[in-house]
Design a protein around this nucleic acid. Structure first.
Lengths: 247, 247
DNA sequence: ACCTGAACACCGTTCAAGT
DNA sequence: ACCTGAACACCGTTCAAGT
């Protein structure tokens, strides 16, 4: 029972690129990303993309299989330039640059951060080149082969984890009253029961996780991120076999 | 123009607890959590909660203002036991226990992980007691007041970040074919172009971020998490003013 | 106070044609 | 190959009553 080829498969099979087609995957991704940037993830819909492009919703399905695949493509589209070439820096400096570069790129489209950190629909988040580079750098740094997978996971978790939290989305729709509610909630913490919290609240309010009412788009946590990167790199140094046991 | 009090406010104002009400916030949260555990976040709907309880959707709105608030309450409900009492351990051991304890609790309801890590609707994620404790521990460890906010952020990012990535949700619906597709994608990486990747692929496949086709529910990353915790704690040690400059 | 019942505006996805 | 056009099953939320 030979089925008729449809959708992407058909397009991939025939290398001819019809010039009369109104749409393209790139155009769809660019439009979707623009909408996500403007309205946020919760307000995003496939129908809205179609509306923006002046086509019927069904037309989009010719290029992506479903909503999730569209989002996946959007992430890949937004992160296509996350790459750091080899260099002759120390492994510490190379990793430091990777972390900061990744954060800078994601901050161009902060609303996609949850898609990268909290869902697995972003294999394109890092191209194989970057994975290869990370493994090479860690190996040359001195981590033995049997630890490489774990240390690689530590690096990725560090790279993506902080930024995901920093750019976490606020509960949708009525963000203004939500922020106001949070602010008063934090302002009414019982400083007698929690003296440390009370004493440091001026420094923590809206600048510390769980005690914020805006996210990293409005109030970036630059100094905390810097410290986080320091902790990761100094920690990795300490776990190198050459430094084991040293204090 | 005096408005009639409705919903939670009214209930909170009148301390009387009607015994004839069919529902309660706790019952709704428990039901919602059960559904999320079973079907996942993407399949979750408020109407489904109402169906499970045998009531009309509107009934739920008497206890929560909207879908987001329901999810927020569910997170608080699931994490109500994340708390570590003071103890006479070292600050290193206390933090280590906090990290592992948090991961253990979230793993009881892995599908809520994205709600904690990637959205801000979880102020109940950590009760003030725990925040107070973290600040106290860090201060007693020797971090000066002007660094406390940043170091606190480092701790929270570490605590939540790894687990969020580890338990990231797979693209919904057809998870089986998605997993199969990912597996073949990873299996067909060009090992000649990426020799390091090729050499370590057996150790990395389905056990390393971006190179997985299942999440932490099926394949926990225990050893990577252990290493991550080591890195964080050793890194924090190094950043203590007393150890500054030592290598 | 708490719930029924019905409705509204929206969504993702699919079926059936068109050209 | 690529899109129109209409439909289906579902959703979150709200209006208007009931008791």
């Amino acid at each position: 029972m030979p089925r008729v080829a449809t959708g992407r498969r058909a397009r991939k099979r025939s290398n001819t690129r019809a010039k009369d087609s109104k749409l393209s995957k790139e155009l769809i991704c660019a439009t979707a990303l623009k909408l996500i940037d403007r309205k946020g993830l919760t307000q995003f819909s496939l129908r809205d993309v179609a509306r923006s492009l002046g086509v019927y919703p069904r037309a989009v399905y010719w290029y992506v299989a479903n909503r999730n695949e569209l989002l996946s493509e959007v992430v890949g589209f937004a992160l296509r330039e996350v790459y750091l070439p080899p260099s002759n820096q120390s492994w510490q400096e190379w990793l430091r640059n990777l972390f900061h570069h990744y954060r800078d790129v994601v901050r161009l489209h902060p609303n996609i951060a949850p898609l990268i950190g909290a869902s697995m629909l972003s294999p394109g988040a890092l191209v194989p080149e970057t994975i290869e580079r990370i493994l090479t750098v860690l190996s040359e740094a001195g981590f033995p082969d049997d630890q490489l997978a774990d240390v690689y996971n530590v690096v990725i978790a560090a790279q993506v984890g902080f930024v995901t939290l920093e750019l976490a989305t606020l509960p949708s729709d009525d963000t203004e009253t939500w922020s106001k509610d949070q602010k008063t909630r934090i302002g009414t913490i019982d400083v007698l029961r929690y003296p440390m919290l009370g004493r440091h609240l001026p420094a923590l309010a809206n600048r510390a996780f769980i005690l914020r009412w805006t996210n990293g788009t409005e109030v970036p946590l630059d100094s905390s991120f810097g410290k986080f990167v320091d902790v990761i790199i100094r920690g990795l140094e300490q776990l190198l076999p050459a430094n084991r046991g040293k204090r």
